[in-house]
Nucleic acid binder design. Structure first.
Lengths: 328, 328
DNA sequence: CTGAAAGCGCTTACAG
DNA sequence: CTGAAAGCGCTTACAG
């Protein structure tokens, strides 16, 4: 592999000059700059990232901590984050948390010695305040720390998030306006920071219509099976309902399958609204009414946070809109 | 941050000894080893990965090149690969190719200077032979190079792959045994190495039954829309068929939506078989009959390739089985 | 504007 | 078995 030294020799200058030209933060005379650039090109020189990192005390890598890449919206987010960060020339190291708080804790312990450029937290689960503190403290080590999905600004972490409460409230109000009153909520509430917000929106809409009923709140996990099981169990218990607000599209799909299996028609008997607008929803029959998601916008915000050297702890709020299809 | 030097001072030994204890490949006296270990623990010492990498000429990072993480099976594979590699203590750097050959080429140019521990290629698309050559050549630089999904052993790259041809042949034969003869193939054929294999299996099964008809072969991309569009177009042209072998579960879903929209019943009028057994398939109504996938097994094989220093160029072949559900 | 020198934190021949 | 020394490839004060 060619090194700065090779380029320097070839160009007849010192390695310091080569470095200065390539990093372009110090003034270098025009002819030197051109000669160096030409030689670097000729030799196909690329700096050794580890040498750079060791010298600078920081690598060019950002760790992306993802709640669970098996969930569609996390996969989509990963996609956009990776390409956005690549565009600004930072490498992405992927950690899949699988919703395990222990894995997050372990990461936090390892993080300081990893010499990362930053960490992006894409986690829906509630995070222990000690961990949050440790994460925020990484900032003092020169890392850029950003949360996508939940608002952690009050813990000192720059955040990009949807207004989940408003979104859920909008969707549930839409169901109420159809004349439905017995509307269930299926989703992760207690363990999920984002889920809690969504639930609050649901609750607010129903309370406003004086139709809130605790027995219709089913605190479940994110996956398909959760949606199916919740519906099956409720039906077995003779609980009746005419609408479902799901905490994710996957849950909504599981619920729709269960309704179908029990001979209930969507949306005639029970209307269903999902959360996240994953691509598949449009190909279901009935097609899934859901709330939009904006991973591309989030990725763009993220880049802005990484552009500055020490980004402010601010919230970039995004709004979800209702995507009306057949299921509600 | 604490360094080897800190640990050495604390333990009253030389940094060389600390390094030897921590790397454990050279003999060190028992009392020294214990003292060093104790001090390292006390100080919470973790080696600086960039210093290690610079010294060794190689980092601890493996690049995972993924065809398109927006496709479910790639997301699932990423999940398993990441956790398997983490277990053997290697970091995962994610590259999403988005099926772009240019991005792959660019990676190949960058790769030598990246000082990677290895690269994992999870790509369904056909790869240009020059790129393949460059990839295989990385091996001489000490990288471990493994392909998951397509067999590249004849290009000098260790591979983990399903027997796609046998799988498709099995599934299509199953449809034929139901008395169906006009069976369509929807999938990526020309541009996809894996798709080509699947198509060959389909073709072999139909030829064996003397029922192969080229007008029922629809070369499309991987996504939902492709499945829907292919079916709609065929129906518009008055082409009739009683079965569909899809090149992916997503395509199968798109096709089922189109059939439903045109008033055709699955499986009574048209049977549908997918490829890959993504979780969602079980929650469709009718539930999707499909061919199993084994990302967990693949990840396990992968670790074995990374365990040895210079793994042999061999093929680990996996068999898909037919997952019988309602759609066929 | 430019170069010589130091040093980031490790590991591994080389001596002993 | 152990230590002193060199060096991986870069960048950046420090002189000039």
């Amino acid at each position: 592999m060619t090194t700065v030294l090779d380029v320097a020799r070839q160009a007849g200058v010192s390695p310091a000059t080569v470095s200065r030209v390539l990093n372009g933060n110090t003034a270098v005379s025009v002819d030197m700059r051109e000669k160096v650039l030409e030689c670097a090109r000729q030799l196909g020189y690329r700096p050794n990232p580890m040498a750079q990192g060791l010298r600078k005390g920081q690598s060019n890598t950002v760790a992306l901590l993802v709640g669970d890449i098996a969930q569609r919206h996390f996969a989509e987010l990963t996609l956009h984050v990776q390409s956005a960060l690549e565009a600004i020339d930072v490498d992405l190291q992927l950690f899949n948390l699988g919703h395990s708080p222990d894995r997050l804790t372990e990461f936090v312990c390892r993080a300081p010695s990893m010499k990362l450029r930053g960490v992006v937290l894409a986690v829906s689960d509630k995070i222990h305040r000690d961990v949050l503190g440790a994460l925020a403290a990484l900032r003092e080590l020169g890392l850029t720390v950003v949360s996508i999905g939940q608002d952690l600004t009050r813990h000192g972490i720059a955040s990009i998030a949807h207004d989940e409460r408003a979104a859920a409230q909008r969707a549930v109000t839409y169901l109420i306006e159809q004349g439905r009153r017995r509307i269930a909520y299926i989703g992760n509430i207690r363990n999920s920071a984002i889920g809690t917000e969504r639930f609050r929106g649901y609750q607010a809409a129903l309370r406003a219509a004086d139709a809130y009923d605790e027995t219709l709140v089913w605190d479940m996990t994110y996956r398909y099976a959760a949606g199916r099981d919740a519906v099956l169990r409720a039906l077995d218990r003779g609980i009746s309902f005419t609408g479902i607000q799901a905490g994710s599209d996957e849950i909504a799909m599981g619920a729709m399958a269960a309704l179908r299996d029990r001979g209930l028609a969507v949306p005639q008997d029970v209307a269903v609204v999902g959360f996240g607008d994953i691509e598949m929803g449009a190909y279901l029959r009935p097609a899934l009414t859901t709330l939009s998601s904006h991973p591309d916008v989030a990725a763009r915000h993220l880049c802005e946070f990484f552009a500055g050297d020490d980004p402010p702890v601010e919230l970039r709020l995004m709004q979800r809109t209702l995507v009306e299809r057949d299921s509600a």
